[in-house]
Amino acid sequence: MNNFYLLDIEFEYGGQKQVITPVLLQDERDTILVDCGYPDFVPLLADAASRHGIRLDSLTKLIVTHHDMDHIGSLAALKRAYPGIEIIAHEMEAPYIEGAKKALRLEQAESTFDVLPAEAKPHAQQFIRFLQSIEPSSVDRTAASDERLPWCGGIDIVHTPGHTLGHISLYLPASKTLIAGDAVVIEDGKLDIANPQYAWDLKEAVRSVKRLLDYEIEQLICYHGGLFRGDVKQSLRQLIHAYK
Rank of each mutant, 00 (worst) to 15 (best):
S138A: 14
V158T: 03
L131E: 14
R129G: 12
H163D: 11
K121M: 11
D146T: 15
E187H: 07
V158E: 04
S145N: 06
S137W: 04
A120Y: 13
K190R: 15
A118Y: 09
Y171I: 10
G162L: 07
I155G: 02
A183M: 09
G166N: 11
V139H: 09
D140V: 10
P173A: 02
S138Y: 04
D188S: 01
T177S: 12
I168E: 05
L178K: 10
F130H: 14
P173R: 03
G162W: 08
W151F: 14
P136C: 00
K121V: 13
V158L: 12
I179R: 06
R141V: 04
T142W: 00
H159A: 12
H163N: 14
P122F: 07
G153K: 08
R129Q: 15
Y171Q: 09
G181E: 06
W151E: 09
I134E: 03
H163A: 15
S138W: 04
I157R: 00
D140A: 07
A118L: 15
H167Y: 03
H163G: 12
A120S: 12
L170Y: 01
K190Y: 11
G189I: 15
D156I: 14
T164V: 11
L172M: 05
I155W: 01
I186S: 01
S137E: 00
R141Y: 02
P173L: 08
S169P: 01
R129F: 15
S169H: 09
P122H: 07
K176T: 05
D156L: 15
K176L: 08
G153C: 13
E135I: 02
L131M: 14
V185Y: 02
G154F: 10
A174V: 08
L131K: 05
P173K: 03
Q125F: 10
A174Y: 03
R148N: 07
T164N: 11
I179N: 07
D140C: 03
I134S: 05
H163M: 13
E119M: 13
P150Y: 06
L191S: 05
W151V: 04
K176D: 05
Q132P: 11
L165M: 14
H123T: 10
I128C: 09
C152A: 13
T164E: 14
G189T: 08
H159M: 01
V139F: 02
R141H: 05
A124N: 06
K121N: 02
G162S: 13
A180M: 10
G166D: 10
I179S: 09
G166S: 11
A143S: 08
R148I: 10
Q125M: 15
D188H: 05
S175D: 14
E135R: 07
D192N: 15
E119R: 06
A118K: 12
V184W: 00
R141W: 02
D140W: 02
A118V: 13
T164P: 03
E187S: 04
E187Y: 08
Q125W: 02
E135P: 01
D192Y: 08
V184Y: 01
S175H: 04
E135S: 00
T177G: 11
E147T: 09
